[in-house]
């Protein structure tokens, strides 16, 4: 189980994808042998009242990459990912998926994206099997395809015992897994996953990582946010650090961490550790 480093085969994949050629705006990076840019954020901005949640973010994600987005709480990760997936209308800037503007041509763009949002409900009065079927059919799959993929996904995520139960009765980790399965069922080119490993047990997490790595090896692209620095360092080939609504660092994981661990680098970028002085009262205990 190794991180895929297959630039050449990816370049072949990218060349076979026509979308980038059709749209003159898409940065045609294929010239220097890099794979196509699958996700391109240009000056993406979102304000809530006086607060600027996302401040003119530029970010490019290439086909076949496994990109981790990290940032402290409230940095704008979820806001950014929501704008990428067409769930939150930006105040400025553009999102291009395979050269298609998500906010100008949402129908075409959304077909290429699989979404796992954080902290949004599922239709949880459906059973697991019903939810997968619903997600697949809404994405335009036919009944036979949905049935076969549901069986595969249920086996891959280890949900065999839970397909008949209502999602409302699932544990947090199982809910995450069924939502992740639902995000993949239409085999999108781009998977945007917000906190996919939150409350998932280590065995299931390893399992999910393996599924995602095989997907990436086949030319798919994953963008995920997480607070697990070790996991991101181990799994992701690219990292973007978002703090205060801006991208402070982006590039391959090795470039960003520059010899340190990702966690050390991240803490430094995010404003450093706060000195734990002035907390001496915590060391004398209440009776």
């Amino acid at each position: 189980m190794t991180a895929p480093e297959l630039p050449e085969s990816e370049a072949v994949e990218a060349a076979a994808q026509p979308a980038a050629e059709q749209d003159p705006v898409a940065p045609a990076a294929a010239a220097d042998g890099d794979p196509e840019v699958v996700l391109d954020l240009q000056g993406l901005t979102k304000r809530f009242g006086d607060t600027v949640a996302v401040d003119a973010i530029d970010l490019q994600v290439r086909a076949g990459s496994f990109t981790g987005i990290v940032g402290p709480n409230g940095a704008g990760k979820t806001t950014t990912l929501s704008m990428v997936t067409g769930l939150l209308r930006p105040d400025g800037g553009r999102v291009l998926v395979h050269g298609i503007d998500v906010w100008a041509e949402p129908d075409r763009a959304k077909r290429a994206i699989g979404v796992l949002p954080d902290a949004l409900r599922l239709f949880d009065r459906l059973s697991g099997a019903q939810l997968l079927h619903y997600s697949g059919v809404l994405r335009g799959l036919d009944a036979a395809t949905v049935r076969q993929r549901t069986a595969d996904l249920v086996a891959a995520f280890g949900l065999e015992d839970a397909t008949g139960r209502l999602v409302a009765d699932y544990s947090a980790g199982m809910t995450k897994k069924i939502a992740l399965a639902a995000a993949m069922i239409h085999s999108p080119r781009l998977l945007v996953l917000d906190e996919p490993f939150e409350s998932v047990d280590p065995v299931s997490a390893a399992n999910i990582v393996e599924i995602l790595q095989r997907y990436v090896a086949a030319g798919g692209t994953v963008v995920l946010s997480s607070h697990g620095m070790d996991l991101i360092q181990r799994v992701c080939d690219h990292v973007a650090v978002i703090v205060g609504g801006r991208v402070l660092a982006a590039g391959t994981t090795d470039e960003v961490r520059g010899g340190e661990t990702l966690e050390e680098r991240f803490v430094a970028l995010a404003g450093g550790r706060r000195a734990a002085a002035g907390m001496e009262w915590l060391h004398s205990f209440t009776e």
Binding site: A129, Q130, V137, A143, R165, L166
Partner: peptide, 29 residues
């Protein structure tokens, strides 16, 4: 509460596997 179980996919199997049919099956459920 004791969890409730559903055999198969219920209304989803009886209504057409189109977005409209699936939304109808979901609403009926």
């Amino acid at each position: 509460a004791r969890p409730q179980t559903v055999a198969g996919i219920g209304w989803f199997g009886r209504l057409p596997a189109t977005p409209r049919g699936a939304i109808a099956a979901r609403a009926t459920s």
